[in-house]
Amino acid sequence: MGTYGYMAPEYTIDGIYSTKSDVFNFGVLVLEIVNGKKNKGFHHANHDLNLLGHPWRLYKNGKQLELMDETINGSYVHTQVNKAIYIGLLCVQKYPEDRPDMPLVVVMLGSQIPLPEPKQPGFYTERRTPQEANCSSSNP
């Protein structure tokens, strides 16, 4: 709790902490492990989305396996990685009531139960480029 890049939206914005905040933290960690990059400071060559927005966009386009760390080079089980990404996205949903609790996360990881459709993550943001920031600050 309190580490930028891992804090749940309800804690960051309103100071409200719950076990669902821990679930959010766990989801960020899962997505970091799959991607091999940290959430804080994540950059992609084709867009300015953060590490929560990037897998969400890939998922919505049916390309979630593109999230995988390139150094693994296909030495993984596709269904397991898809499941991890899916569960990571369920854990980082914007609203705490939409996130599973940790006992359910454990069940989801260890079984073949049907999973609910994830909703947009909290902090699904696109950063402005330095050039865009300079233009907007110089224009009244």
Rank of each mutant, 00 (worst) to 15 (best):
N35E: 09
T19I: 13
V107S: 14
T79Q: 09
I85N: 04
F24V: 10
K40Y: 14
H44K: 07
Q131K: 12
G88S: 01
M7I: 14
M102C: 12
V77M: 12
G74A: 00
H54D: 12
P118E: 08
M7E: 06
N134L: 02
E66F: 00
D101T: 15
G122Y: 07
N134H: 08
V92T: 15
S136T: 02
L49F: 15
M102V: 14
K119S: 14
G53Y: 15
G110I: 01
E132N: 05
T79S: 14
L90Y: 06
Q93Y: 09
L58V: 13
C91W: 07
Y6K: 08
T125K: 10
V92C: 01
S75W: 08
M68V: 15
H47G: 15
C91L: 09
Q112C: 02
N39A: 15
G110D: 06
D22V: 04
F42K: 00
T125R: 11
D22N: 11
T19G: 05
D98Q: 15
V23E: 03
V34S: 09
I87L: 02
D22Q: 15
Y4F: 09
T19V: 10
D22W: 12
I16Y: 02
H44L: 05
S137E: 06
S21Y: 06
C91Y: 12
H78P: 04
D69H: 03
Q80E: 15
Q112Y: 08
K60N: 06
P121R: 08
K63T: 11
V77S: 11
P9H: 06
I85L: 06
L65R: 01
K119Y: 07
Y59C: 00
F26M: 12
I13H: 12
N50P: 03
Q131D: 10
N25R: 13
L49G: 14
P118Q: 07
F42T: 08
D48L: 15
E32G: 00
N134V: 03
P100V: 08
G5N: 03
I87M: 05
N46I: 13
K40L: 15
R128L: 10
P55S: 07
Q131Y: 03
H47I: 04
G88W: 00
P96L: 04
R57N: 13
K20W: 09
E66C: 02
E66T: 01
P140F: 05
D101Q: 13
P96H: 09
Y124P: 03
H54I: 14
I87A: 05
M68R: 07
V107Q: 03
I85A: 01
E32N: 07
Y6P: 05
G27H: 07
L104Y: 09
L58C: 03
D48V: 09
I13A: 02
E97K: 11
P55R: 02
N139I: 11
T19H: 06
Y86S: 07
T71S: 14
N35W: 08
S75V: 04
H43P: 04
Q93M: 14
L58R: 14
P116R: 05
E97S: 06
C135I: 05
I33D: 09
H54N: 14
G74P: 00
G53P: 11
Q120T: 12
K60C: 08
N39I: 02
S75D: 13
V92L: 01
